[in-house]
Nucleic acid binder design. Structure first.
Lengths: 343, 343
DNA sequence: ATTGGTTTTGAAAACGTTTTCAAAAACGTT
DNA sequence: AACGTTTTTGAAAACGTTTTCAAAACCAAT
């Protein structure tokens, strides 16, 4: 049943032959149909149909110098948050006729450089990258010396002159910490993940800002990873249980809750816990998690939009787009009254 | 600071010029270094280094006919389960030097056909696809007429002669239903999602098999979607609450639990609930979900391996690889004793 | 020194397109 | 019918590689 004609040996030449015209004419029918007479146009179209001809993108790209390809580099293709951003960007860009290559680095900087090179040699026209960790000189060198358009999304290497779209991590954590302090929490623990990403550092700064501004002295900062298990471990090792725990993301907050529950504390009666991200499951956890919602999809969509501007309007002034967050109140926080003198 | 030499105008010709050799020699240094004298080899390498030259993959592909590109088509790039499979396949294939294009259809069949065409015209050498829904004649026609290698992963279009690697959905659901029935549950509800995917139909069959084999008569099958919300809605609409609910996946099971809880039932004291997937969060839900674990990553890895065989050894007999599942016992099931006469 | 064989090299063709350019055809005006 | 103008067409060049083929260079043995 295999239609021999329709396999990859069909090229523009065979179409031309079948239609009895030159290959130039076939090409024109495809790219600029009005420029060829109706008669020939029909013949050619019939031949294309009959042969199931699809132009070879490779050859086309080589000739035109345009691949219509956008590359994505993200730390982990298994993390839905990154992919929601990617989807946002794609939703914008696919209407402009681009196709996509998305690659994950597994949080590995060497891999990140490898992928950067790979995408470049595939002649992508633009790239959107969410950085994997500490800055790398190879990465910077390559970025500085290429002229394919690029935008950083969610995380960036700060000293590279590349447009960035992200979220106001600092203010986000600051707002939710403010909320905790202003609702009476007097002792706080911040559970950070790895400090080698810009977003992690920004969130930490938000916590510090809030705690300083309110002159809270009873606080502690712990470093681990951005995982459930890390939140769990760090919490278990706590000597003194604070009135509130701020997780660097939802996962560590959820881990903390698990640990606290096992230790016999109840949430939020004994201790309040908050997170950051508002990932899909946080609203369904028991108790449901008070956290900071990031406009993940919008971030990606915006990144796509900015990349498109770069691509079409040529260079643009360095644009940093910072989106705002919302704190979403749910069940893991309970106001406290620590200061009976005040009452 | 931009190194003008390193931008995309560097091609094999400029390297040749700088090194004072022909382009053939440069090409040889890259692809078959031993075939050129040490002297020239060094000169060329120095020039490559100095110019930051990277071969243009497009041109190379055009000439060699080999792109080293693998395409993925999955229903939703935002769903971590699909991406874990993709990662499995990539982990195998990337060691063989392939790069990847992964595309999501948003469960849309038209989009699926579009992507299939797009990937084909990008000259991918192989594809791994997880089908989006009901079969489509365009899709079949294209698949039958191309000779790029392909394998179906997790879901398939049954009448296409394409190797498939999946999971024994039927036996999976059958085992967990057996477990429920054999631990005393006498009235069951199965909450299915959309019936247009092979895996959904297989799971449903598992439920029916078990219920028939045990001659259970008090059961009901409800159709919705594979979402939390659907599980919730379907459960809320239940006239009579059964002793056990089997969710077509974890999400609908979790939705069912939420609904039951709101309706005043406690899990598992009043009703047992099980799911299918063992997604990341199921072990952390409260109570933790008894479910069926699928070897998601392994499925992808196997798909990658099979595709590679196809790619290297040419055609292969139709291989269907079916991986087995495990039921994982957690807290949402409680044995019942319905038959006091037995005791 | 010449021969014969091997290794190293470069010129040119090829991959499948798009695009430039000039030739051919069509058309409208006289 | 002859002319000029416009439209339609095809030949050929070009994109950046790899690869074939033959020429050049080297080397060993006479």
């Amino acid at each position: 049943m295999k239609n021999k004609a329709e396999n990859n040996s069909t090229n523009i030449k065979s179409v031309a032959q079948m239609a009895g015209v030159s290959i130039s004419t076939v090409s024109r029918v495809i790219n600029n149909p009005e420029s060829v007479s109706e008669e020939l146009r029909n013949k050619v179209r019939k031949a294309i149909e009959a042969l199931g001809y699809q132009p070879n993108q490779i050859a086309r790209s080589l000739r035109t110098g345009s691949t219509k390809l956008i590359g994505f580099i993200i730390p982990d293709i298994t993390n839905p948050a990154f992919l929601l951003m990617v989807k946002g960007a794609q939703d914008f860009l696919k209407r402009k006729g681009y196709t996509f290559m998305v690659c994950g680095t597994d949080h590995n900087i060497r891999e990140e450089v490898k992928l950067l090179k790979a995408l470049l040699s595939q002649n992508v026209e633009g790239m959107i990258v969410t950085c994997s960790g500490g800055q790398n000189s190879d990465f910077s060198r390559i970025v500085n010396s290429t002229n394919v358009k690029m935008v950083f999304m969610d995380r960036r290497y700060e000293d590279l002159n590349v447009p960035y779209v992200g979220v106001d991590n600092t203010t986000g954590v600051e707002k939710i910490t403010d909320y905790l302090i202003e609702s009476g929490h007097r002792s706080l623990v911040y559970l950070s993940g790895e400090r080698n990403t810009s977003s992690a550092r920004e969130r930490l700064r938000g916590f510090v800002n809030s705690v300083r501004r309110h002159a809270v002295v009873d606080f502690q900062i712990l470093y681990g990873k951005f995982t459930f298990e890390s939140g769990y471990e760090l919490t278990k090792r706590l000597k003194e249980i604070p009135q509130a725990i701020v997780g660097g993301n939802d996962l560590v907050a959820l881990g903390a809750i698990e640990a606290l529950t096992q230790m016999g504390y109840s949430i939020p009666e004994d201790v309040s816990v908050v997170g950051f991200d508002d990932m899909f499951y946080s609203k369904y956890s028991k108790p449901s998690l008070t956290t900071v919602r990031q406009p993940i999809y919008e971030m990606g969509y915006t990144a796509g939009k900015i990349l498109y501007q770069l691509l079409s309007k040529g260079n643009i002034k360095k644009t940093n787009t910072i989106l705002q967050t919302d704190v979403v109140l749910r069940e893991t926080v309970k106001p406290r009254n620590n200061n009976p003198k005040r009452g």
